[in-house]
Structures are given as C-alpha cells and as structure tokens.
C-alpha cells in the first residue's frame, strides 16, 4: 500500500504539489539553449533508455540531476554504471521533506576510470515514503540498496539508515554506525527532531 503512494508521488510529478523541487527543475528545463552539450548528451542517454520513468532534475555545467522512482533506482543505477561508465558513489545524502511526506536520498555518482567524466557528477535522487512515527527498519520507509551496484555506498547507506531511518532492503550489514548504541530517539536528521533550545 505504502509503495503505491510513493510511486504516484515521484513518477507522475505534474499533479502532486511538492513545492520546493519544482521551480528549480522547471527553470532549467525552460532554457534549453544554455544547457551544456556534453551533459545534455548524458541525460539524453538516460531518457532514451528509461523514457518517462526518470525525470531530469537539472542539467548544469558538470552536474546532472536525475529523479527516479524507488522501484527503478536499481535499474537506473546499473545502467549508469554499465552504460555510462560511472563507477563510484561519492556521497549519499538523505534530505527530509516533511511537507511532501517524503525522504529524498541523493546519490552523487562520479567516475574515476573515464577521464572525460572526471569533472562530472551525476546526481541520482529517489524518494522514500516518510512515516510520522518512524520505527527504523520496520516501517514503510524503505528503499532498495545500491550496494550490489556501487560497493562504495556501503557505509553511506548505513549512515542514512540511522540518520533518517531509511531502511535499505538488501543491504548486507544494515547496522548502527555513528550514533550511540542506546540511541532511542527519532533519527536525528529528520526535520521534526529539534535541537534543544532552538
């Protein structure tokens, strides 16, 4: 049930509101003249392969953002690795959007082996459903893991799991990493976890 909700949110973007991400994405799309050619060709390849399952967030110089639904993220990542020569994930950041009731997980993917891609960062963003009362690991806040695609996400995904409560299905070692063993509060990087006195 929860996955249905999620799918509609990301894939059919026009009708669901999600105010923050929209304007930026639209702005870049409206001025196609300024788009750098090389980055455009990469994003075109992804669009060509996956059609409207993916959405190009923006194409800037050296940076491409791809928004993708959670059931496609694994396939897209495999294509990015095999078809586009990206080979490692630099950073996995989770961003909490309580107004959308979603948690976004952003993979910044780069390439060492292809020198033409050395400057490039491909931003792969996907969203998981957000629970108001999270039980990390046992609620609907789940995403497929990318560890079998990119080995380098191993510790990053563990960090996102404990900081935002996003459980990565298929991750071999989804344990606590940075927080103390007796941490029983909300995952701290959620927006509803407030620092004392602020």
């Amino acid at each position: 049930m929860s996955s249905d909700v999620k799918t509609t949110t990301v894939d059919s973007k026009p009708e669901v509101k999600s105010p923050p991400p929209k304007p930026a994405a639209k702005k870049t799309e409206e001025k196609p003249v300024e788009l750098p050619a090389f980055e455009k060709s990469i994003s075109d390849k992804i669009i060509e392969k996956f059609g409207d399952k993916v959405e190009v967030g923006f194409v800037k110089e050296d940076r491409i953002r791809i928004n993708v639904g959670k059931e496609d993220v694994h396939n897209v990542a495999e294509f990015i690795r095999d078809g586009l020569n990206y080979d490692h994930v630099e950073s996995v950041s989770g961003v909490d959007y309580p107004q959308d009731n979603e948690i976004e997980v952003v993979y910044h993917i780069g390439s060492y082996s292809d020198s033409s891609l050395a400057r490039q960062i491909l931003v792969l963003a996907t969203r998981a459903q957000r629970e108001t009362n999270p039980i990390p690991g046992n609620d609907a806040t789940k995403l497929p893991t990318l560890r079998d695609v990119f080995y380098s996400v191993e510790f990053h995904e563990r960090e996102v799991f404990e900081m935002l409560g996003v459980f990565f299905e298929g991750h071999p070692d989804n344990r606590r990493l940075l927080l103390p063993e007796d941490w029983a509060d909300l995952p701290p990087l959620r927006k509803d976890f407030a620092i004392k006195g602020r």
Partner: peptide, 15 residues
C-alpha cells in the same frame, strides 16, 4: 575505484 576511495589512497593505486 570500486570502493570509491579518494585522495592519496586512490592515487597510490594508480588512478
């Protein structure tokens, strides 16, 4: 490359 290492670790491995 696979582990996504960086800096001196990466460059010591020939990247």
């Amino acid at each position: 490359i696979r582990f996504g290492t960086t800096g001196s670790v990466l460059r010591a491995s020939g990247v």
